Structures are given as structure tokens and as C-alpha cells.
Amino acid sequence: MTGSRVSPVTALPVAVAEAADLSGQPVSGGSVTDRPAEVVPVTASPVSPVTSQPVTDRAADRDTEELLEIAKQAVKEADNKLTRAVVATAIRGQQIPLSSDTLTQLMAQLREQQLKNQLVDADRS
């Protein structure tokens, strides 16, 4: 090993090392911040990668009656426990997206219907 000399490894600043990693080009000594920033204008509304439609609460677009029927069946199967968890699980279990706002609206309608049914049942007694 005489005559061969191992040179010490020189540590590069993190920004310079990352610049080499990001671009795949040799490190020029400049920092990452020396490069001009790439500006991408936003001109369109956000789109869903699956449907290419604007990102919205797609459950709100579905027929409310369909969601109510799914929810009613789930509540019935859960021994008439009308909870957000029961309703949300039933709807989302059918691969239907459901926002918190839509769930709140459904719960209000279901509770109103449940109250009406209880009043009708009480009048019959």
C-alpha cells in the first residue's frame, strides 16, 4: 500500500448534496436556492384522478332517497340504533363517498322521520 494514498472524504453541505441527488447532474458548488423556482399556474378546478370531474361531495350528487334507504336498512339491522357510525359504515361500505356534512344532513332527516314514527305510534296507543 505504499504509494497509494486515500484522500479524506469531504462532507458537502446538505443543500449541495441534495442538489446532486435531485438533478442527477454533478454538483456545481451552488446551492439549491440558486436555481430559479418553477412556477406552475393553477388554471382549473381540482379534478379527481379517477373520474376527471371536479372534486366535490359525490354522495351529495346521489339521490338522497337512495342514501336514506341504505341508512334506514342499516339502522334496522343494528337493532334500531340510529348513530353516525352505523349510517356512515353502511353507506361507505357500498363504496359511496360520504362527507361529514352529508352525513349530518342524513342524520337530521333520519331523526326527524324517527320522531314522526314515534309520535304516530304513540297516537295509536
Rank of each mutant, 00 (worst) to 15 (best):
residue 93 G to N: 10
residue 110 L to Y: 02
residue 77 E to Q: 15
residue 31 S to N: 13
residue 16 V to I: 12
residue 82 L to T: 02
residue 36 P to G: 05
residue 107 M to H: 05
residue 121 D to K: 13
residue 24 G to K: 01
residue 54 P to I: 03
residue 12 L to I: 09
residue 43 T to Y: 01
residue 18 E to W: 05
residue 30 G to H: 13
residue 119 L to H: 09
residue 17 A to S: 15
residue 24 G to F: 05
residue 43 T to P: 00
residue 104 T to Q: 12
residue 100 S to L: 13
residue 100 S to V: 11
residue 57 D to G: 10
residue 92 R to L: 04
residue 91 I to D: 03
residue 10 T to V: 15
residue 26 P to K: 10
residue 102 T to F: 06
residue 24 G to Q: 07
residue 41 P to Y: 01
residue 32 V to N: 01
residue 10 T to E: 11
residue 106 L to R: 01
residue 120 V to P: 06
residue 38 E to H: 10
residue 25 Q to Y: 08
residue 47 V to E: 09
residue 12 L to S: 07
residue 2 T to Q: 11
residue 106 L to V: 09
residue 74 A to T: 05
residue 3 G to E: 11
residue 44 A to V: 11
residue 60 A to H: 03
residue 60 A to P: 01
residue 28 S to K: 01
residue 120 V to S: 10
residue 77 E to T: 07
residue 4 S to L: 15
residue 81 K to T: 13
residue 29 G to Q: 08
residue 13 P to T: 11
residue 117 N to I: 07
residue 94 Q to T: 09
residue 10 T to M: 11
residue 66 E to S: 12
residue 101 D to H: 04
residue 12 L to C: 03
residue 88 A to R: 11
residue 55 V to G: 01
residue 19 A to G: 10
residue 15 A to P: 02
residue 119 L to N: 06
residue 96 I to H: 06
residue 119 L to M: 09
residue 82 L to M: 10
residue 6 V to K: 14
residue 40 V to Y: 00
residue 86 V to D: 00
residue 96 I to P: 05
residue 108 A to Q: 15
residue 49 P to E: 03
residue 114 Q to G: 01
residue 32 V to M: 12
residue 39 V to N: 04
residue 45 S to H: 06
residue 8 P to Q: 14
residue 57 D to Q: 10
residue 14 V to T: 13
residue 97 P to G: 00
residue 47 V to G: 00
residue 13 P to S: 09
residue 90 A to T: 03
residue 68 L to F: 03
residue 93 G to H: 03
residue 103 L to P: 01
residue 58 R to K: 14
residue 83 T to D: 10
residue 77 E to L: 14
residue 52 S to C: 14
residue 71 A to D: 02
residue 108 A to V: 15
residue 33 T to M: 07
residue 104 T to W: 03
residue 74 A to S: 05
residue 49 P to V: 09
residue 114 Q to R: 14
residue 115 L to Q: 13
residue 42 V to N: 02
residue 44 A to E: 08
residue 108 A to N: 14
residue 72 K to P: 00
residue 115 L to E: 12
residue 88 A to P: 06
residue 22 L to I: 07
residue 114 Q to E: 13
residue 39 V to Q: 08
residue 48 S to C: 15
residue 17 A to G: 08
residue 79 D to K: 10
residue 98 L to A: 04
residue 119 L to A: 11
residue 124 R to D: 07
residue 62 R to A: 01
residue 28 S to Y: 04
residue 47 V to P: 02
residue 36 P to A: 10
residue 18 E to T: 09
residue 35 R to Y: 12
residue 6 V to E: 13
residue 82 L to V: 03
residue 87 V to Q: 02
residue 46 P to F: 09
residue 7 S to Q: 14
residue 70 I to L: 12
residue 28 S to H: 06
